[in-house]
Amino acid sequence: MKIGLFVPCYVDALFPQVGVASYNLLRYLGVDVEYPKGQTCCGQPMANGGFESQAAPLAQKMEELFQGFDYVVAPSVSCTAFIRHHYPSLLDHECKMAGKCMDIVEFLHDIVKPTAPLGSFPHRVSIHNSCHGVRELGLSSPSEEHIPQFNKIRDLLQLKEGIEIYEPERKDECCGFGGLFCVEESAVSTRMGLDKVRRHAATGAEFITGADCSCLMHQSAIARKNGIQIEFKHVAEILAAGL
């Protein structure tokens, strides 16, 4: 089984350590992972902003880049959700990416299924349930729906010894990032982010963790600006810590 690692543009540029953690974690778990060169962006920012046509050539490129892989794994729920749900309509031929691209949390949880402890992380963490992870990829049961409760991020984090896991009040309300939403609707976006960070901080957590760096990036900027002492780590970073 050959796995291609997709490190989306903003993770590549701003959170390279998340790419490294993802790569190391997959390798540690015995996954045959490769990072094909020449990756940029999946096209989501432009499409969500209303310019889907600009995403089409990028979709085509992604399709070619990951041709030879059984799965494409990305440390980003929103990019994965975009690829899964929108690529088929962007391409004028059959889309392979949509069926084989997975977020790293769902890939580990559903395919690799690790059960042995993954070292320790003796800290209090608050899970940030990103909207696209919850409502588009099904990483956890949406709070709105009456279905059995589950949370794949929590399941994985429980493999770390000594970890204390929390979720904020309003456990899957949006943090307000929303791609270009944070530019176009900056006032609402900032308020949403501040409300979110405060609720995470109220759990007493030292870290906010989640499966999408963009939500974490938005919140960390707001936390910094408002003097809220809390750190941010992608789930992959916590899982890979100390391995």
């Binding site: 940029t40 096209g43 902003g49 600009q54 990028l58």
Partner: peptide
């Protein structure tokens, strides 16, 4: 469509389409 957003997206897509 907002002109500034169109420009921004155009800029981004130019960068992303040229490795």
């Amino acid at each position: 469509e907002p002109a500034s957003k169109r420009m921004l997206c155009k800029g981004m897509s130019t960068v992303f389409n040229h490795p």
